[in-house]
Design a protein around this nucleic acid. Structure first.
Length: 431
RNA sequence: UCCGGAAUAGCUCAGCGGUAGAGCGGGUGGCUGUUAACCACUAGGCCGGGGGUUCGAAUCCCUCUUCCGGAGCCA
């Protein structure tokens, strides 16, 4: 007899197979038991009939708790009541473990309870769907970069200093070398990689010790940073657009069922796979002010402004040419105005906010040095970074994607905490 | 860090000055087609901690703790 996955059930209609997995739900009615069975790949209704199973096995099966682990043998067939679905005519049930008092019930739960039981919550269907979309988004990003000549170049997670000097870092003792910090971005290290490999990316966890308390922030999240030599500002945005549109297509192609489970509006995703809008920071502010916002020209966009800006836009919007005061020191200034930088933020539609930050980098030694002095940075600490502008400096650009933000948008999830297996937030480190 | 809100059964909540409640989950029994199955019975509580007011507090007041939502920062 063949062991199969529920996702392959359609290929085995009419022949006896074996399934290994868990009880999502169980109902019994006299001589019948209905088990909603899942094995990680999908779920199926298994129907056990008392005369078929035998008295003893039937009574044992009736007492199975939710999330019990079992091995079923049976014959897959068309669902008697639902067209296009299948069910399993059960021949035998082997109980691996009967789970008693599974804490997550079939009714509603609050976020605190669910997060405290995150190790179990990930089994439920919506969490299963989100985690599968996360997997698809992750691979789609790597696939696009690989197909566009980017090489994986892993940045260190333990670093001797702050990357941008702006955000708060998690600090730890590093033997006799003093303090070390958990990386908040691999970007500066990535810039070294392009001088060896041309185009590089990293993808790993980064850490922000900010006391952020919103549904768009985690203290530990996964970021993909990409960096490319000889790529200038406009091409940088073109690469980002190509990547995001590739991700959208892959999610629609591979996660149709998952999007249905999450009740995600797929038409909204399809509509986002079209040329992205571009506007300067100045134009964005003008537009927002015309819509009633009181934002001024020297300001970063708040969450409400981001939502207002993308309202009615089916596609993401690039905002570029920012005032240099509100952007990082390494961004190259715009040729037409030295007070602006060639940085861009990509704002997702439907109010999901910023998903990418990118820029062309300052490649001139003296200009970079003066910007670092303005920021009162420790120049000795960053000598290696300045070296890049001394030994074969070239124009180059890069960007960083927050994986969970992108997954939040793709899956239509309300809160970013559900898009990572174990979210780390200001008030949560367990489990 | 700032501004709001919440804490009552394992879970989700109702009760808002006069004997502690429901649904789900658990247990027992019933039913050949259930869809968060249903029906009957049943067990389950220091009403977040501390302090007041009152004849009497889950309920009103103060305080602490924890959590939720939002702002700022950013991906």
């Amino acid at each position: 007899m063949q062991d199969i996955l529920v996702s392959d059930i359609a290929k085995h209609l009419g022949t006896e197979v074996r399934l290994k997995g868990w009880v999502r739900n169980i109902r019994h009615s006299g001589k019948l038991i209905f088990i909603i069975f899942r094995d990680g790949s999908a779920e199926i209704q298994a129907v056990a009939f008392k005369p078929e199973l035998g008295e003893e096995s039937f009574e044992e099966a009736k007492r199975l708790g939710i999330e019990s682990s079992i091995i079923l043998t049976g014959i897959p067939k068309e669902h008697q009541k639902k067209a296009g679905e299948y069910e399993l005519d059960v021949k035998s049930i082997k109980v691996i473990q009967n789970a008693e008092d599974y804490p997550i019930s079939k009714k509603e739960h609050g976020p605190d309870f669910l997060l405290s039981n995150r190790h179990l919550w990930i089994r439920s269907s919506k969490q299963w769907a989100i985690l599968r979309i996360r997997h698809t988004v992750y691979f789609a990003i790597c696939e696009y970069l690989n197909d566009n000549d980017f090489f994986r170049f892993d940045s260190p997670i333990l670093t001797p200093n702050a990357c941008e000097g702006t955000t708060t870092l998690f600090e730890l003792d590093y033997f006799d070398e003093g303090k070390a910090y958990l990386s908040q971005s691999g970007q500066l290290y990535l810039e070294t990689g392009i001088m060896s490999l041309g185009r590089v990316y990293d993808f790993g966890p980064v850490f922000r010790a900010e006391r952020s308390k919103t549904r768009k922030h985690l203290t530990e999240f996964w970021m993909m940073d990409a960096e490319a030599a000889f790529v200038e500002h406009d091409e940088n945005m073109a690469i980002q657009e190509g990547l995001i549109r590739h991700v959208i297509r892959k999610v629609l192609e591979k996660c149709d069922k998952e999007l249905d489970i999450l009740e995600r509006d797929k038409d909204r995703l399809k509509a986002a796979d079209a040329p992205f809008k571009r506007m300067s920071h100045h134009e964005a502010i003008e537009y927002l002010r015309s819509k009633g916002s009181e934002i001024d020209h020297g300001s970063d966009l708040g969450a409400a402004d981001e939502a207002l800006l993308t309202e009615g836009s089916p596609v993401p919007i690039f905002i570029d040419r920012w005032p240099k005061e509100i952007k990082a020191f390494y961004m190259k200034r715009a040729p037409e105005n030295e007070n602006l930088v060639l940085g861009s933020d990509l704002i997702a539609p439907e109010g999901f906010g910023e998903i990418i930050g990118g820029s062309q980098r300052e490649d001139d030694y003296e200009l970079l040095l003066s910007r670092m002095k303005e920021e009162k940075m420790d120049l000795e600490e960053y000598q290696w970074f300045l070296d890049l502008r001394k030994y074969g400096s070239v124009p180059h650009s890069g960007f960083g994607i927050g994986l969970e933000r992108l997954v939040t948008w793709m899956s239509g999830t309300h809160h970013i905490r559900e898009t990572i297996p174990f979210p780390r937030m200001i008030y949560r480190i367990y489990p």
